[in-house]
């Protein structure tokens, strides 16, 4: 479903991604871990071209998104993204946050978009917040709304960049629960996170990134209990 070949990314002189090769299959949940500055966010942002890539290719359902002929807005509409800082639209009510993109990008009719939005709100357990403004919500609630907003576009896959890192500990659970449910429903997901419990429970595969490379990848239990690389061991000893 996602295929990354020889991906390189530099910011000025700083080579952040050095040679990334990954494949993500349909309905797979891939968890990305690694120290700060490893390039995890950059990797994720390259997948929907929020950062332009320096060289290499990325295919989404066999379409080369790095090809200049590809309609990038169409690709992005099919790839949902959830940010660490939520990035809800503060000037819109929750319902409008969710309805906007389907209406403007996919030209969904208002009634349909609204029906869908309410369904999604129910799914993330926040129906009663439909008419609230984002600023009145807690962090956990905001992130659940952000997930609902991404889902409203009916994406084929979802990218999560540390979705729980900005949350107070007691709110992490509610967001992870939504994500677990998503995984169960068969969503293809790439998740950058430090929540090892989540990785163990729903991850099909874990990628360990460091210094712009994918240093090691394996099935979660295997990687956590028998890391092969020294760098992986050093990192895990700090976080586990």
């Amino acid at each position: 479903m996602i295929k990354v070949e020889n991906l390189k990314k530099t910011f000025g002189d700083n080579e952040v991604l050095k040679d990334i090769n990954v494949e993500v299959k349909k309905q797979e949940v891939v968890v990305v871990i690694g120290p700060s500055g490893a390039g995890k966010s950059t990797f994720l942002r390259c997948i929907n071209l929020l950062d332009s890539i320096t060289s290499g290719h990325i295919f989404i359902e066999s379409v080369d998104i790095t090809d200049t002929k590809t309609d990038i807005n169409k690709i992005r509409a099919e790839v949902g993204m959830v940010f660490q800082q939520f990035n809800l639209f503060p000037h819109m009510k929750v319902l409008d946050n969710i309805m906007l993109a389907p209406m403007k990008v996919k030209k969904v009719e208002k009634e349909k978009a609204q029906k869908k939005a309410l369904e999604l709100l129910k799914k993330v357990g926040l129906e009663e917040k439909a008419d609230a403004y984002p600023d009145s919500l807690s962090g956990g609630q905001k992130q659940r709304i952000a997930i609902a907003r991404a889902l409203a576009m009916e994406p084929k896959m979802m990218l999560f960049d540390e979705p729980t890192s900005a949350l107070d500990p007691e709110m992490v659970g509610e967001v992870l629960d939504v994500m677990k449910q998503l995984a169960k429903d068969g969503m293809t997901m790439v998740v950058v996170t430090h929540e090892m419990g989540f990785a163990r429970e729903v991850g099909d595969r874990v990628l360990f990134m460091d210094g712009g490379y994918i240093v090691e990848e394996n099935e979660p239990h295997e990687l956590f209990s028998h890391p092969r690389e020294e760098r992986t061991k050093a990192f895990l000893s700090k976080v586990l």
Binding site: A77, M81, F83, N87, F89, A101, V105, A146
Partner: peptide, 14 residues
């Protein structure tokens, strides 16, 4: 905030 533009673009908006 830059995140606003990124969130909008990530949803497929031009």
């Amino acid at each position: 905030d830059k995140g606003q533009m990124e969130a909008a673009r990530s949803l497929g908006m031009s």
